[in-house]
Simulated assay, not measured.
Amino acid sequence: MAEGTKPKGGRSAQLERTGLRHGWTTGACATAATTAAYTALLTGEFPDPVTVTLPKGQRPAFALAAEELADGQAMAAVVKDAGDDPDVTHGALVRATVRRGGPGTGVVFRAGPGVGTVTRPGLPLPVGEPAINPVPRQMMREHIAEVARRHGGSADVEIEISVDGGEEIARSTWNPRLGILGGLSILGTTGIVVPYSCSAWIDSIRRGVDVARAAGRTHVAGCTGSTSEKVAVAVHGLPEDALLDMGDFAGAVLKYLRRHPVPRLTIAGGFAKLSKLAAGHLDLHSSRSQVDKGFLAGLARQGGADDALAVAVAGANTGLEAVQLCAAHGVPLGDLVAEAARATALGVLREAPVAVDVICIDRAGTIVGQVEPGRAYG
């Protein structure tokens, strides 16, 4: 998550102290449903609950929400429980239908209703493949092999994963922008959803960079919201696959671009959020960083503010009030914040070949501060 101050023991220890309940990824749910379905296909009985082994050795048990056994195939379903995380897939019904495959075919994955298909390069799966990520695929392969060993079956099967209502749910995710069409992705590297870790959002940022690079984009924009995204498009004419829904996770964008550079990055966002980046914060969420009015007053002094104006800035109710006070006195606080935010970004990028410009806006989308690559105020 965020850079900077953390309780001793890290995020996991903090969550344990708060009593928030962990949940299970769609990949874990799909693995549980697959295991139950293939067991029934071989034995005629569905294990309920069904226990699976996650990548780090945990062995959760999942109750079945639906089951159906027919000639040559079996279907089992599990309700996705995201714990106390505000996950859009919480409560979704994840289904696995398992059919016998031809000798030597191995495990073949299919996208059923509500599961997307990859249509653009740059993702960890080839174009045309169902959006079932590599770790969930490996989990399902391992459990198929174990069920086959235990019950005398073959590991040559076809697995169709579907999610009830998944196509509608996917409209609230990054999938359409990433070129995953028709539904959700089956995700998860550990099988566990850590509440408020926002790992899925950060992973989507990374996949967005991958897709932009695969499309040959040389300029991407990390935007804090839809209004700043519209401004970035208006200023730079960027296509949809060059837009990164950065949200509060400036650090995630910058660290991934440090390892996987794109020649130019625009950072666009509300003045208050970008003033936090200017002050060195990489997580811009209100619960984890605050607008530092004293810092803004210091920047205002650098821009020519007298003592009275600096005191007024330090006592402003909001960041935007501070920038408005300065604008009335000819002090370009917005530009100074943009410049400082760019300096923070370049510090995280280190020597990566990424030129950075910054656009600060107000709530209406009006640009109140801006700095171009290689330019500084004054």
Score class of each variant (00 low, 15 high):
A70E: 15
A148S: 14
L69S: 08
E67H: 14
I144A: 09
R95K: 11
E129L: 01
A28D: 04
D84M: 09
N133M: 06
G57M: 03
E45M: 07
P121E: 09
L41H: 08
A65F: 02
L64G: 01
V115S: 01
V108G: 03
G102D: 15
D87I: 05
L20W: 06
G116W: 04
V88T: 14
P124K: 10
D87K: 09
V127L: 15
R110P: 00
T53N: 05
I132L: 10
G104H: 12
V157F: 10
G122F: 05
T105H: 08
I159G: 09
T35I: 11
T26I: 10
T26K: 02
L64D: 00
M140L: 06
A145P: 04
A131I: 04
I132A: 05
L125G: 14
V107K: 12
A40S: 04
A76Y: 06
T35F: 07
T43H: 00
I132K: 07
Y38E: 08
Y38Q: 14
A74N: 04
A65S: 15
L123D: 09
H90S: 10
G116S: 01
R149C: 03
P86H: 13
A74T: 02
P121H: 01
I144M: 05
P113Q: 12
G27Y: 05
L125W: 10
E160G: 04
L123Q: 03
Y38V: 12
G57T: 09
T31S: 11
L20F: 07
V135N: 01
E160Q: 09
